[in-house]
């Protein structure tokens, strides 16, 4: 093993013994290809078994290991020690309550995901013997980018408005909502509009754009939110030209 060592500072929080989160430093053996996730698992396996973190796939697919690395929302598996020669500071994801160490409470986020009705609401019901809903590659291209979300929560940690108003439905959920609205098989846009229009909807956004910057899957939530603003503004002024009491209407 090379003699080079790297410093990893972790913000610890063990509710049974820490009143507030505290920093703890570890020294781990350094190599050029070592990810932060590998370093944290080295700590857990070799140095301090009490360290808690979520992880699974090690390859930016599962979205479990989102955390603040050097103050930036990042996936631990996709961030490398070599980019932090001065040592690295790892904290739980911002804007989420800490459950323990690097593990955050995701309940509020999960609830928001559910609220956007993230499933196809068919335009017209089909019976099984009518076969599947067909879609062309061009129709799929419209929403494919937004379907790349892995629910890692980095965009929520990046969004200053989520930090200021935890009720804001947030970038990830709006990107997911937009993904279904753009789907040629879906007919649920009107049902989802009430949430977009509401006080917890798109107008909480101040177009900072950091959500799209930190996304590890190249999803562009900022674009989804912006399109949502335009749609909502149109709905605001033209709603009087539609019959009242539509499904999902908000007053």
């Amino acid at each position: 093993m090379s003699a080079a060592m790297a410093k990893v500072s972790v913000l610890r929080y063990r509710p049974e013994q820490d009143e507030v989160p505290v920093w703890q430093d570890y020294q781990v053996p350094y190599s050029d290809d070592m990810s932060v996730l590998t370093a944290l698992n080295y700590i857990k396996d070799e140095l301090d078994g009490t360290l808690s973190l979520r992880w699974s796939c090690r390859q930016a697919i599962c979205g479990s290991c989102g955390m603040m690395i050097g103050g930036k929302p990042s996936l631990a598996c996709k961030t490398f020690l070599r980019d932090y020669p001065e040592g690295i500071r790892v904290e739980a994801l911002a804007h989420f309550p800490i459950e323990r160490d690097l593990v955050v409470v995701m309940d509020g986020f999960m609830d928001k995901l559910q609220k956007v009705k993230p499933y196809i609401i068919p335009k017209e019901a089909r019976s099984l013997d009518e076969g599947e809903y067909l879609q062309t590659p061009a129709e799929m291209d419209l929403y494919a980018q937004f379907a790349g979300c892995i629910n890692c929560g980095l965009c929520y940690a990046a969004c200053p408005q989520v930090g200021l108003n935890p009720d804001f439905i947030g970038p990830g959920a709006i990107a997911l909502l937009h993904r279904y609205n753009l789907d040629s098989r879906d007919g649920g846009s009107a049902e989802r509009m009430a949430l977009i229009n509401s006080e917890v909807g798109v107008f909480n956004c101040t177009a900072v754009g950091y959500c799209s910057e930190v996304c590890p899957k190249m999803v562009d939530p900022a674009n989804a939110v912006n399109v949502g603003k335009m749609n909502s503004a149109r709905d605001y002024f033209f709603r009087f030209m539609r019959p009242a009491g539509e499904k999902g209407e908000c007053r």
Binding site: S198, E199, K229, S232, Y236, F237
Partner: peptide, 16 residues
């Protein structure tokens, strides 16, 4: 939960 949603009047100011 949709019943509890209040429409935002932000579009007026956002468009201006």
């Amino acid at each position: 939960m949709n019943q509890a949603l209040k429409r935002s009047h932000e579009p007026i100011f956002w468009l201006l």
